[in-house]
Each structure stands twice: as C-alpha cells, then as structure tokens.
Simulated scan of single mutants.
Amino acid sequence: MNEWVPVDLIHLSDGRDVSLVLRTVERHEPRRARVRAECLITTDFVNARLQTDIWLDHLEEWEEALRRLGAGEDAGWPQGSRGLELYFHPHEDGWLSLSVHDPDRLTVALGLRPPAEWIDEHEANLQRLRDACGEP
C-alpha cells in the first residue's frame, strides 16, 4: 500500500511572510463526499490554522475559478458554502488580493505577488487531489 502524502490544493506564498495553504490532512476514504483539510494562513499579523473539509463536488467549481483567475477575473470558491470561503482578486500588475472568510472563526484579507505560473501549478494541484481521491 502506498504511503499517504498530504495534497496542497492551494499553496500561495510571497516567499517571505504571507501565505495561504489549503491542504488535505488525511487520506480520502472511498464513498465519502469530502476529504478533511486545513487552511493555513500566515502573515506578519496572523498565524491561523482552520480545520475544514474539501467537498469533492466543489472541485469542478475550483477548476472554473482557476480559469477565471487565469483570464484576470475575480473568483470566489466555493460558492454558497456555509463554511470556509476564499475570494481572489487579481490585479493587472501581478498582485493578488485574497480574502479568507470562515463565518464562525475568522475573516482576513491578504495580498501577495504569486509566481507567474501559479495558475498552472494550481491546476496540477487540482489534478493531484483528484487522483488521490479517485475522482475523474
């Protein structure tokens, strides 16, 4: 049996002191609609770890959000969720504004300049998660 390895669906960082990571924290169980995850937020004024879930039926929506972000449009994910919600606003100069909203625990806004290839990296992360969960 293969050893389980966490998958970062989202990993954005300025390489210094601002980062947002959405990472699986346990192996996906077959026939489950979700995988346990944590959202890690680090800045010079916040260091937060939020327990959450990644719902597998929201992965197509994340794929669409990445498409929109690649086109320079705003995107939010997941839409209509009662839990953790992420909002992304790309700027023309390469800067990315992020908002993390968890209605029961935290709302925080971040800004960073991700590497130019960050959309491609996140599409690969999405495929890694789909593969790990046996999703098409």
Results as ranks from 00 to 15, higher is better:
1 M>S: 14
3 E>K: 08
5 V>W: 10
5 V>S: 13
6 P>D: 10
6 P>E: 03
8 D>F: 04
9 L>V: 07
10 I>E: 00
10 I>F: 05
11 H>E: 13
11 H>P: 08
14 D>T: 03
16 R>L: 05
16 R>S: 12
17 D>Y: 12
20 L>V: 02
23 R>A: 07
23 R>F: 07
24 T>Q: 12
25 V>G: 02
27 R>V: 05
28 H>K: 05
30 P>S: 13
31 R>S: 13
34 R>I: 04
35 V>F: 04
36 R>L: 11
37 A>W: 02
37 A>F: 01
40 L>G: 00
40 L>N: 05
41 I>C: 04
41 I>N: 00
41 I>M: 01
44 D>P: 06
44 D>E: 10
45 F>G: 06
45 F>V: 11
45 F>T: 14
47 N>S: 06
51 Q>A: 15
52 T>K: 01
52 T>H: 01
55 W>I: 02
56 L>I: 10
56 L>E: 11
57 D>W: 10
57 D>V: 09
58 H>D: 14
60 E>I: 01
64 E>P: 05
66 L>K: 02
66 L>N: 01
67 R>P: 10
68 R>G: 08
68 R>F: 03
68 R>M: 04
70 G>S: 15
70 G>D: 09
73 E>Y: 04
74 D>I: 01
74 D>H: 05
75 A>R: 04
76 G>F: 09
77 W>A: 01
77 W>G: 04
77 W>F: 02
78 P>H: 03
80 G>S: 10
80 G>Q: 12
81 S>H: 05
82 R>S: 15
86 L>I: 03
88 F>I: 04
89 H>M: 11
90 P>F: 07
90 P>K: 06
91 H>Y: 07
93 D>L: 07
93 D>E: 13
95 W>H: 14
97 S>M: 11
98 L>A: 07
98 L>T: 00
99 S>F: 14
100 V>C: 03
101 H>Q: 06
101 H>T: 14
102 D>Q: 14
102 D>L: 09
103 P>F: 04
105 R>E: 12
106 L>G: 08
107 T>S: 15
109 A>W: 01
109 A>R: 04
112 L>N: 10
113 R>G: 05
114 P>E: 05
116 A>N: 03
117 E>V: 09
118 W>H: 08
119 I>G: 06
120 D>Q: 12
124 A>M: 13
124 A>G: 11
124 A>S: 11
126 L>R: 01
126 L>I: 10
128 R>C: 09
130 R>K: 09
130 R>A: 02
131 D>C: 02
131 D>A: 11
132 A>G: 08
132 A>R: 01
133 C>D: 06
133 C>P: 02
134 G>V: 09
135 E>R: 15
136 P>E: 14
136 P>Q: 15
